[in-house]
Design a protein around this nucleic acid. Structure first.
Length: 124
DNA sequence: ATACTGACTGTGC
DNA sequence: CGCACAGCCAGTA
């Protein structure tokens, strides 16, 4: 894989996400070795050719929020058995794809991940 | 080769 | 609790 690079891997991972599960952009990026490349991952989805049949509706943000401007996405996930919270967010704590690594569920605000403190230190 | 964009993320206030 | 700012990676123009 990786014949083309990052994108190919992103699509590959997304295509491997089982129904009823969701994965966050950051999780995919981290899987590729670049936890900060979440944007690139989202971009890969945005430019992902539909002919690939990518279940982009299974990709959500770290907050469990669905893609902004997407109305059918929630319906698609529900059809797969994904449950939602009252606020309209996916119950990622329950459906976030383990990514073949069980025990990693809840990597984000939901878990108060305080890794690397100098991550977004805006000190310009 | 350079610049810009893009469906994110984590902190800061 | 909500809004804003800055950093990151890769592909297209």
């Amino acid at each position: 894989m990786a014949d083309s690079g990052f994108f190919r891997e992103v699509w590959d991972i997304v295509a491997r996400v089982p129904a009823g599960k969701v994965v966050s952009y950051g999780q995919i990026a981290a899987r590729l070795g670049s936890p900060r490349a979440a944007r690139t991952v989202g971009w890969a989805m945005a430019t992902a050719p539909r002919r690939l049949g990518l279940p982009c509706h299974r990709v959500v943000t770290s907050s469990g929020r669905l893609v902004p401007g997407w109305e059918t996405q929630r319906d698609e996930l529900e059809a797969e058995g994904v449950t939602f919270k009252s606020n309209g967010c996916v119950d990622m704590a329950k459906h976030q794809w383990d990514g073949k690594r069980v025990g990693k569920a809840g990597r984000g605000p939901a878990n108060r991940l305080k890794a690397k403190a100098g991550a977004g230190m805006r000190g310009s």
